[in-house]
């Protein structure tokens, strides 16, 4: 059921629409995510995190290099992977339940079974009472839970999450983080989670991959490996957590500064 992701020497470049030149989003990126691992990816904005995720999702093809799942090259999108976007991307004309059913319809699951399964998954994310609501009747946190349920419903072996909690308030975000860890432990899926929050990356990931600013490269991979926190203890305030967080902060600091400098090149100092 679990699947490993392997990104080997991937370069992705696009034609710049304004200058007509080529701009390199990812430069020779290699990253191995073993089956069942929860890997978080942090980097300054515009470093190519989402580009990398699109490649694994099969939405785009790399200019050079290859991306494989369990050794098989990715040829396009598929139901073996589930993608969760920051802006939820729910279909507004479908109720929460019908949104969750969407992927199951593609998988040709019979209607009765589809509804049952969708209800189960909505229950898993704690939204069974809101099955018949349309997205505009749900809060941001609820929408994101529906989006996650939609991806979980068809049981993908790989979950790809592109800053899914960035638009949520702190309390909701922490609740959803714990939900996600629970779901991950239960399903054993391989998770590639993109974020710009260092704390979120350390809290969720077994390992944290730090990317450089443009062109994106993998700068470092940090093992988190924190001791389990005791009951009622906030894992975020343990010394080990703080130490990892600071380490990644230092790694990122230079990159963020560099990315800001790049944006302001015309200004002579």
């Amino acid at each position: 059921m679990t699947t490993s992701i392997s990104i080997r020497n991937v370069t992705q470049s696009f034609r710049d629409r304004t200058t007509g030149g080529e701009f390199v989003a990812l430069d020779d990126v290699s990253l191995e995510v073993p089956a069942g691992e929860f890997l978080t990816l942090v980097g300054p904005s515009g470093c190519g995190k989402s580009t990398l995720l699109d490649l694994v999702a099969g939405l785009t093809r790399p200019t050079r290099g290859e991306v494989t799942l369990d050794g098989r090259p990715i040829t396009g999108p598929g139901l073996d992977r589930g993608v969760v976007f920051q802006q939820y991307a729910l279909f507004p004309w479908r109720t929460a339940l019908a949104n969750v059913e969407f992927g199951l319809e593609e998988k040709k699951v019979p209607r009765r079974e589809r509804q049952e399964r969708a209800r189960e998954v909505l229950d898993l994310v704690g939204l069974s009472a809101f099955a018949d609501r349309y997205p505009h009747e749900l809060s941001g946190g609820m929408k994101q839970r529906v989006a996650i349920a939609r991806s979980l419903a068809y049981e993908p072996a790989v979950l790809l999450m592109d800053e899914p909690y960035a638009a949520l308030d702190a309390q909701t975000r922490e609740a959803l983080q714990d939900d996600l860890l629970g779901i991950w432990r239960r399903t054993g899926a391989t998770v590639l989670f993109i974020t710009h929050g260092i704390e979120e990356a350390v809290y969720l990931g077994q390992r944290v991959a730090v990317m450089t600013s443009r062109p994106g490269r993998i700068k470092a991979i940090v093992d988190i490996d924190l001791p389990e926190a005791g009951d009622g203890e906030d894992r975020r305030s343990t010394p080990a957590f703080v130490e990892r967080r600071h380490h990644i902060w230092q790694l990122l600091r230079d990159e963020v500064r560099r990315s800001l400098d790049n944006q302001h090149t015309p200004v002579a100092v």
């Binding site: 999702a57 939405l59 598929g78 139901l79 992977r81 993608v83 991307a89 992927g103 593609e106």
Partner: peptide, 8 residues
């Protein structure tokens, strides 16, 4: 994009 990621 979201629908495409589901392989539609």
């Amino acid at each position: 994009k979201s629908a495409r990621s589901l392989g539609l």
